[in-house]
Every structure is written in structure tokens, then in C-alpha cells.
């Protein structure tokens, strides 16, 4: 079991609920994630959300990214522009642009080619044009997108669009990145690319935090160090709202950052499966 230390809060979600009209979609969502520090290496956070279809994962993600104002509650992230007071980092309410977001539909700019999109994502970076070009070309070749760099979104396949959307956010976003079902529609090779990208993000900064949703339980158990199950508390009730029904802290369970898939991991997968079925 890897020893680790819990430090500052990096994400605090307080009593979130969202309604459309008079239908409550998610209710009372509360959770808190801390910066985990593993001695001797840089370790970011990977948080997975699992839940059956329509339980409100995408809705919650829109709130986490500041794109939608919740009916109640708030999402807090540390405000690094201010000095710590009493050993604590001041917090601020998340705003649009603070958190990168790849949506479930792989939306892109329809009028920008792949290359132009990535250049746009880098527009706020201070590096020189040549540096930007080099960085983009490196990503394109790593992700197998070199050949289509001058194509528009409507000339790309679904998986290509999705990888473009992920790359855009990689280049643009700060420490936080939310991805709604980043693995759907990808082939085995692309899945490895995205996994490698997660790994890279994790290694590159202590505070980097990836939040993603998926329907692939094994993948979530392999990648995440914290898994939340979004479901209905009372599955039979018709107008039930989504909320967090389970939290699995893989760090505490000793299952996080494992190089291989152990029988304990498999057991957790079984647990999660039955918990999903019951919600």
C-alpha cells in the first residue's frame, strides 16, 4: 500500500441541487477532495463518477465546471491568486473557464481545423509561435492525428473529434479538467492514448485533478483514486433525484496507483456493479 498524505482541499462541493422546471435532477450532492501527496513523486488526483444513464452525471459536471448555476449549493476551489491565511488557502466559487470541460458530444469549433483549434486553445500561453507549433505537432503525432491536422470537425470521425476535444482542454485548462465519458467511442489504441494522457497530467503537477465519468467500471477502478456513484436513493420512486449513493476511496482501500489489476480490484468492480444496479 502506497503511503500518502492528505493536504489542502482542492475541491469542495456543498449541497448542490439542480432542477429543470419543477423536476429535480440532482439533489444534495456533497463531497470534498483533498490534494493527495505521495512522498517522492508528483501525484495528481483522478476522480471517477459512475452512474446509470440519466442519473445526472452530465448535469453535475456542468455545475462543477461553472457552466451552470446550481439551484442550491456551491462548488469551491482554492484561490491561488490570494495568500494563504492561517495556513489555509482561501477558496473561491468556481467560474466558467476555471475548469476545462470535454462534453459528451465532443463539441468543437465548426470553423476551425484541428490545428487551428489547438492553436486557439494555446492563445493565452506566453510561448513563442515556434514553441506552440512544436508542442501541437508533438501531441498530434502522439495521438495519431497528424494526417488530419487540416481537417474540419465535420470531416473527422467521432473518435477523432473526441481526441481533438481532449487535446484542446489539455492545452488550455489549468489544474482542473472534467471529461464526460472520455472513453466512449474510442478504439483500444485511443483508450491507451487517453490513459497515457491522464498519467502525464497526473505526473506533471501536484494539484492537477481529472474528473471523468464512464460506464466502464474496470477502467474507473484502474485509473481513479476516488470513485463516486451517482444514483437514485430510492430506485422505485418515480420522481427521484440523483445524488451520491456511494464513495469508494481507493487510496484508503490501498487500491490506488497500482501497476496491475489484483483480485482486490476485481472484488471492488463487483461491489460497484451491484451498487450501480441497486441505484
Amino acid at each position: 500500500m502506497t503511503t500518502y498524505e492528505r493536504r489542502d482541499t482542492i475541491l469542495h462541493v456543498e449541497n448542490i441541487s439542480v432542477s429543470y422546471g419543477n423536476k429535480t435532477i440532482i439533489r444534495n450532492v456533497n463531497f470534498e477532495e483533498k490534494d493527495t501527496a505521495v512522498p517522492g513523486k508528483v501525484q495528481g488526483q483522478v476522480i471517477a463518477f459512475l452512474g446509470r444513464s440519466g442519473r445526472g452525471k452530465s448535469t453535475l459536471f456542468r455545475v462543477l465546471t461553472g457552466l451552470e448555476k446550481p439551484a442550491t449549493g456551491k462548488v469551491l476551489i482554492p484561490d491561488y491568486s490570494r495568500q494563504p491565511a492561517n495556513g489555509q488557502q482561501p477558496a473561491k466559487v468556481v467560474e466558467e473557464g476555471d475548469v476545462g470541460f470535454v462534453d459528451q458530444k465532443y463539441t468543437l469549433f465548426r470553423h476551425k481545423t484541428l490545428y487551428q483549434s489547438l492553436l486557439f486553445a494555446l492563445r493565452k500561453s506566453m510561448s513563442s509561435t515556434a514553441e506552440k507549433h512544436g508542442r501541437i505537432m508533438q501531441y498530434l503525432s502522439d495521438w495519431g492525428l497528424e494526417k488530419i491536422k487540416d481537417q474540419y470537425p465535420n470531416e473527422m470521425s467521432g473518435g477523432q473529434r473526441q481526441r481533438t476535444a481532449i487535446l484542446e482542454q489539455l492545452l488550455s485548462s489549468g489544474n482542473y479538467m472534467v471529461l464526460d465519458e472520455p472513453f466512449s467511442g474510442l478504439d483500444v489504441g485511443n483508450i491507451e492514448n487517453v490513459k497515457a494522457a491522464f498519467e502525464l497530467i497526473n505526473r506533471s503537477h501536484e494539484l492537477n485533478t481529472i474528473i471523468f465519468s464512464t460506464h466502464d467500471i474496470e477502467l474507473a477502478v484502474q485509473l481513479a483514486d476516488s470513485i463516486y456513484i451517482l444514483g437514485h436513493k430510492n430506485c422505485a420512486g418515480s420522481d427521484d433525484a440523483g445524488t451520491i449513493v456511494h464513495h469508494y476511496d481507493l487510496k484508503a482501500l490501498g487500491l490506488a496507483w497500482h501497476p496491475n489489476f489484483t483480485p482486490q480490484h476485481l472484488e471492488l468492480v463487483q461491489n460497484i456493479r451491484s451498487s450501480l444496479l441497486a441505484s
Binding site: 457552466l67 473557464g97 475548469v99 476545462g100 470541460f101 462534453d103 463539441t107 469549433f109 476535444a165 484542446e168
Partner: peptide
């Protein structure tokens, strides 16, 4: 989604309008 995509790429609202 297109508007939100631009917003999540740190576009200001005027930039969203422009792009």
C-alpha cells in the same frame, strides 16, 4: 454545447460571441 465549449476554453463572453 457550442457556446459552452467556447466558455470552457476560457473565452470571455464577447469572445464567445465573436467565435
Amino acid at each position: 454545447e457550442e457556446i459552452d465549449h467556447a466558455r470552457s476554453l476560457k473565452c470571455s463572453r464577447w469572445e464567445v460571441l465573436w467565435e
